[in-house]
Design a protein around this nucleic acid. Structure first.
Length: 567
RNA sequence: UGGGGCGUCGCCAAGCGGUAAGGCUCGGGUCUUUGGAACCCGCACUCGGAGGUUCGAAUCCUCCCGCCCCAGCCA
């Protein structure tokens, strides 16, 4: 029934569109738009909106426009325009021919404003910004009308034209819609729709010194493009009467329907552009694409796939309730995607050397390993084995608790795809007492990991041949914030006080299976028993391989330990 | 004390007068050459609260409580 990857679980916006279609509204067209302001990088919250808008269009055979809401030259930059397009495309969406900018409509918008003035529905106000604020009243008290409110149409026309020509300085005049200074809805108290900004615009250059504001621009841009359903976030709900007012008063090609939904919040991170910018500017992270950032570029560098993010956006639903989704769901979506697609390799992050004392010196075997047990078509590979190998430090305990069934003195375990080994001796650092090397024996009959006599072992360990190991740097990431809600009030300090000091752990002498030497960027791997890893887009080189941990595997042993139930 | 929204399991979220879907998390189990994956079982006698209407209410009505948004010449 559903041709896309969406679950088919309906939500209120989908229902509205279905009803509109049944009622024959908009002649059966569904045209949506994603309207970012180019003043920052896209994050996972934007992904929700992108998936919604582009997804709806795809689902109903319509189209979705990408429109830059670039009406404020003071805040916007070309750098962001480029990154936004790259991110939307990377997520898997295509706006085709329909790339627009609000600034494309500056001429039309100006004409509409003139019309409004002609109808006596807009006027040039010459109050200062502070005065306008005072006149606006408060939440509980009505505003007062500006002394300039009743200028004649001709005077307004003349002044507005002169504003456009650049005869005035910033702030000297503004154009306001004439609505109702006593409205309980603050947005309707004669909202400002044009302001003077003597500043070049990244697209229109110095053609304009007056720029329209959001409330005037957005609805008209929607109407000009023939948008049918204008989906935005909850904070614009109060603006809807104004959106409708503008389109009702003016003769426009159509009157799109504004529909509001709740924006996405995620635990253990922050989502506001302002806060993300602070993390970047204060050097808390390495940049907008730091793998710990909830930005699209950060998630991408972390190893998230477009599929996993789309699936996540589909699962979280769309509603009007403010909510905070657990980060665990995002991680689940990544694991689910990568489990079926990622080729498996062995990699030892914290190496402990093991000498197999009864294994012939100088002998090297190549053992066959399955690339992905979830997908046999991915084939097999050969892994070199020798007398000296590395295993994970965490896979050995000298005095193990009851439920630890990995390696310990006298215990036998399986080396994945290799042999059963038994620990017969351990060597400690004389000074620190730390175990630095293990001596084990192997059973030649268990080659490949099967025991002909049916003998069982409780654990299977990953390992890497010491001689053939690929040395690599591996970066382990964790939540940026320890607290699920870093913005929680009280407890003192701002959100930066709640940073997770261990959000990044860099490991330098990791030993990886040699096959990983020709890892390619934008690819992903499972390091068996550990998690999913990807070459770092920026820092990975053949000479100095760097891998990022995208997400750990589910780890019930770690969970037992944490819960104190390991004994 | 103005206006606009929202309150269903730890977190999301269906439900729209006929007797509480689903996912994540969590707990238990089967299986396993990843303590992974897969599979099975369990997890709201109750829907912010109190009244009311009805044979019957999460759904309708009334009152109350809580949370979010709005006083940019930002979007």
């Amino acid at each position: 029934m559903n041709t896309n990857e969406s679950s088919g679980a309906s939500h209120f916006i989908r229902n509205i569109i279905r009803e509109d279609l049944e009622a024959g509204k908009n002649d059966g067209r569904v045209i949506t738009r994603f309207p970012p302001e180019p003043n920052g990088y896209l994050h996972i919250g934007h992904a929700k909106s992108i998936c919604l808008n582009f997804g709806l269009a795809r689902e109903f055979g319509g189209r979705c426009h990408l429109r830059f809401d670039d009406t404020n030259p003071a805040k916007e930059e070309v750098e962001y325009i480029e990154s936004i397009q790259e991110d939307v495309r990377w997520l898997g969406f295509d706006w085709g021919e329909h790339l627009y900018h609000a600034s494309d409509y500056f001429d039309e918008l100006y004409d509409y404003a003139v019309q409004l003035i002609g109808m006596g529905k807009a006027y040039v106000d010459s109050l200062t910004a502070e005065e306008i604020r005072e006149y606006r009243g408060t939440l509980t008290q009505p505003g007062r009308e500006s002394p300039y409110r009743n200028r004649s149409v001709d005077e307004n026309l003349d002044l507005f034209e002169r504003m456009r020509r650049g005869e005035f300085e910033d702030g000297e005049h503004v154009l306001r819609a004439k609505i109702d200074m006593a409205s309980p809805n603050m947005n309707m108290r004669d909202p400002t729709i044009y302001r003077i900004r003597r500043m070049p615009h990244h697209r229109t250059g110095d053609k304009w010194v007056i720029y329209p504001l959001y409330d005037f621009t957005h609805c008209l841009s929607d109407a000009i493009e023939g948008i049918t359903h204008s989906v935005c976030t909850l904070e614009f709900e109060d603006h809807r009467p104004l959106y409708d007012w503008v389109l009702d008063v003016l003769q426009t090609p159509c009157h799109p329907q504004q529909i509001e939904f709740a924006r996405l919040n995620l635990t253990h991170t922050v989502m506001s552009k302002r806060k993300l910018l602070r993390l970047v500017q204060e050097g808390v992270v390495s940049g907008w694409d730091d793998p710990r950032m909830p930005t699209i570029s950060g998630l991408r560098r972390r190893g998230y796939t477009p599929e996993s993010i789309r699936n996540f956006c589909d699962r979280i639903g769309v509603a009007k309730r403010n909510s905070v989704v657990e980060f665990a769901l995002l991680e689940y979506c990544l694991r689910q995607d990568l489990n079926r697609r990622a080729p498996r390799y062995m990699g030892v992050l914290k190496p402990l050397k093991v000498v197999i004392v009864n294994y012939p010196e100088g002998l090297e075997e190549n053992l066959e390993a399955i690339n992905n047990p979830e997908d046999i078509s991915m084939g097999t590979r050969m892994v070199p084995f020798s007398r000296e190998i590395y295993i994970e430090r965490d896979d050995f305990m000298e005095n193990p608790p009851k439920k630890f069934y990995r390696l310990s003195p006298g215990k036998e375990v399986r080396l994945r795809y290799a042999y059963f080994i038994t620990c017969v001796d351990l060597i400690k650092d004389e000074k620190t007492g730390e175990v630095v090397e293990l001596h084990c024996t192997y059973d030649p009959a268990t080659r490949g990991g099967d025991s002909p006599d049916g003998r069982k072992v409780k654990a299977t360990l990953h390992w890497v041949s010491a001689k053939k190991a690929l040395n690599a740097e591996v970066r382990l990431y964790d939540h940026l914030f320890t607290q699920s809600d870093p913005e929680e009030e009280g407890a003192g300090g701002d959100f930066l006080a709640r940073l997770n000091p261990r959000s990044l752990e860099v490991l330098h002498d990791c030993k990886l299976e040699p096959g990983l030497a020709d890892a390619s960027k934008e690819s992903f791997y499972q390091f068996e028993r550990l998690g999913y890893f990807c070459p770092d887009i920026k820092d990975f080189t053949l000479e100095h391989p760097v891998f990022n941990r995208s997400v750990t595997l589910r780890d019930t042993w770690a969970k037992l330990q944490k819960a104190g139930k390991a004994d």
